[in-house]
């Protein structure tokens, strides 16, 4: 069995994001990391591999800097490393990216696929269900735990009543929320092995697909609107006003 994990390299969530010339300035990013939910996906994939056996292929799409991400995945136990080369990934729309990833998944032969529920840059959450659609797979999102009895897979996801365990068969995609275990720490032995592991680089041509033209053009990136200066209210009767502002002005509840 081949298990795939889709990984995205994003600016570390603690890194400062600055905008330069109408675009987020990637050169100013001090640290690139796994997107946090992808770490849970990788850990869940490693655990499934350890319990059910199989080969774990780590797949990322993006520019050359993404290779570090694959080495980090190898250091904790990914067996095969696939870099879908896309220098212009930021200019591709979600459908194009999903096409790249779906083709890579199919070329890898994986039938069980893990990814994060959303990436920390776009915060979108389209990839898991989108890739599932393109490869004709089931998809369970917001998953915290995955196990297998050898024939089917059981995933835990939230429900209106709390949580529920659901069963699916391969091919299937699991989009991980915060899982029950943090991603394991690598060790020196894993790092030394990761250094020697080859990275397979697949171009769009290698994947044999045509991702077409995008219908989306990014006009600009800009810093978020300055928050208004603090507002101060007198008395408990102002609480409802503040709650209204939290909902409509700040959009946080």
């Amino acid at each position: 069995m081949t298990i795939a994990v889709l990984l995205k390299q994003v600016p570390d969530t603690t890194a400062k994001i600055s905008v330069n010339g109408g675009r987020v300035d990637e050169n100013a990013v001090s640290k690139w990391s796994f997107s946090p939910y992808d770490e849970y996906a990788l850990e869940a994939a490693l655990q499934l591999k350890e319990s059910a056996g199989g080969d774990l292929v780590a797949i990322t799409a993006g520019p050359a800097r993404c290779e570090k991400l694959l080495r980090d995945a190898a250091a904790v136990g990914a067996d095969t490393l696939v870099h879908v080369s896309a220098e212009n990934i930021n200019d591709l729309d979600s459908t194009q990216v999903q096409n790249l990833l779906a083709a890579a998944v199919q070329k890898s032969g994986a039938s069980v696929i893990f990814c994060g529920k959303q990436a920390a840059d776009t915060n979108a959450g389209s990839t898991g269900p989108g890739v599932a659609e393109l490869i004709g797979a089931s998809c369970v999102t917001l998953v915290s735990e995955v196990s297998s009895d050898g024939s089917e897979y059981t995933a835990t996801r939230p429900s209106s009543a709390g949580h529920e365990k659901v069963a699916v068969s391969a091919p299937c995609v699991f989009a991980l929320d915060k899982g029950i275990t943090e991603m394991r720490r690598p060790n020196v032995r894993g790092i030394m092995m990761a250094k020697k592991k080859p990275i397979e680089t697949w171009s769009v041509d290698d994947l044999g697909i045509d991702i077409g033209a995008t219908g989306v053009s990014i006009d600009s990136h800009s810093p978020p609107a300055e928050k208004p200066p603090g507002q101060k209210f007198e008395g408990a009767e102002s609480v409802s006003t503040v709650v209204g502002k939290l909902r409509d002005e700040a959009n946080v509840i």
Binding site: R71, D72, P186, I191
Partner: peptide, 14 residues
Amino acid sequence: TDEERMVRDMVRDF
């Protein structure tokens, strides 16, 4: 080296 940086990040996270 890449390896040294990976070791650094591992220990830093710890």
